[in-house]
Design a protein around this nucleic acid. Structure first.
Lengths: 136, 136
DNA sequence: CTCCGTGCAAACGATTTGCACTATG
DNA sequence: CATAGTGCAAATCGTTTGCACGGAG
């Protein structure tokens, strides 16, 4: 089962990498559709799945929300905006989890961890300030 | 808009608390249906939403598809099994995130974080050992 | 007696899949 | 050419919602 580099796969990958964002499948579909109008959403889903399976991109899963795909496949943390759901990559230095402490928590053998910082992004902070001013 | 303690709400809450687990809505539905056969899945969803809104139970939106509900509403971390998706509560002492370091990462104002430890639970470790022995 | 809560079915949004066709390697 | 990938529509999965009825306070 070898990977073929089709036109649609190439464009999907390129647009995700160039976006430098954590896009959902349908956001990426909208972008790619401009360049390749007959592409289907299913193709976008299939390729994102395959590319993340192959370790070329990353996949972000939070239950209850849409999956997002990460232009950077390497291990890192994320910060996300509670208001607009924008996601950014992050490395929490010194505050990360010390694996040694976790070797066998509650009888589990620990293989990794996922850390998400939750906050409000600069844009949404600005918007909220404007709202406050409007109310005055 | 005050809360009424209906029969179904009482049973849903009791069964979640007694389970000492992190159940999905439909797992809990299966349990409650035994005791109250005419209850609908929508009622289970509605009550879990209301109870977590009220801070009586916790809601888990960690990776994976379905939401899970937590018998413990207090702030804590989670460890989950990559094989069977079982979830346990956890407090990662000393390894947690130091909020001071995070006051304004990338321009965000930080409001919280979510930490999931990933591993393999004792039961699934045992199962994997059995498989290895079978292969020999 | 007031309305919050219920059961049911239908609606919904995100994602996946079966199928016949296309095009890569 | 063999077979991975595509477009399309329909199916699926988890969850939510509209509605008329029922029951808690």
């Amino acid at each position: 089962m070898q990977l073929r580099m089709t036109n649609q796969r190439e464009i999907i990958l390129r647009e995700l990498l160039e976006s430098k964002q954590h896009l959902t499948a349908d956001q990426l579909y909208d972008i790619v559709k401009q360049l390749m109008p007959r592409i289907s959403l299913a193709t976008v889903y299939r390729n994102l799945e395959i590319l993340s399976e192959a370790g070329i991109i990353g996949k972000l899963e939070i239950s209850g929300r849409q999956k997002r795909f990460d232009y950077d496949p390497n291990d890192h943390d994320h910060i996300y905006c509670a208001v607009c759901h924008r996601v950014d990559n992050l490395n929490v230095e010194g505050a990360g989890v010390q694996k040694e402490n976790l070797r066998s928590v509650k009888g589990y053998s620990v293989t990794g961890y996922r850390l998400e910082i939750i906050g409000i992004c600069p844009k949404c902070q600005a918007k909220e300030k404007n709202k406050e001013n409007d109310n005055e």
